[in-house]
């Protein structure tokens, strides 16, 4: 058994764990944060996507003991009914889900993806890798969100929701001078 301090959604918990336990199982079974889903348990579907220090990771491929002290955000930490995160609201408005099982992972992934894009991280479809600011086109969103499967096929709604939120973000971003990278 190993002891680890998991800091999730702003709350710290000391947990005794078998070192083989994945971050996903620790969140779901120990901390009872069941919003994060297990779709394949082998890194193929994205349903378990969470944010660690603002970056998206697959919680099923992460060992919980490696994440002590890191700032972990799950879907429950983004917003609650009544004060939802803009992406959660946009997913509802643009019907970015059907059964809802992949949704937590999609939303966490989208939050992380928008941060990556803001930071200038290119994707395989980015036309000019050296460009400081790439517009977040539909093709960019589709490429960057391809690690999150949705068997119901709510992909267009997901794109629309992200574009809607990114539009707001882009206006905020252009207010600041872009750093040269």
């Amino acid at each position: 058994m190993a002891e680890v301090e998991l800091r999730v959604n702003g709350t710290s918990s000391r947990v005794q764990l078998d070192p083989r336990v994945s971050l996903l199982d620790a969140l779901r079974e120990r901390l009872r944060l069941t919003g994060t889903k297990k779709g394949c348990d082998q890194g193929a579907c994205g349903a378990c996507t969470v944010l660690v220090d603002g970056e998206r990771i697959l919680a099923c491929l992460a060992l919980a003991v490696q994440y002590g002290g890191r700032e972990i955000t799950t879907v429950e930490g983004l917003g609650r009914p009544g004060r939802l995160h803009p992406l959660q609201e946009a997913f509802i408005r643009f019907d970015g889900f059907q059964c809802g099982f992949c949704t937590s992972g999609q939303i966490c992934s989208a939050v992380g993806m928008l941060a990556e894009h803001r930071a200038g991280v290119p994707s395989v479809v980015t036309p000019r890798l050296a460009a400081t600011a790439t517009p977040l086109s539909e093709a960019e969103i589709r490429e960057r969100m391809s690690g999150n499967l949705c068997r119901c096929g709510a992909y267009d709604g997901i794109v629309d929701a992200i574009q809607h939120v990114a539009g707001v973000d882009d206006r905020a971003a252009t207010a600041e001078p872009a750093a040269d990278r």
Partner: peptide, 17 residues
């Protein structure tokens, strides 16, 4: 909008597991 939208997008809709 779906009536279960807030629960599903906030991770609060409970599935079997």
């Amino acid at each position: 909008d779906r009536v279960d939208g807030p629960a599903k997008t906030a991770g609060l809709a409970r599935y079997t597991a």
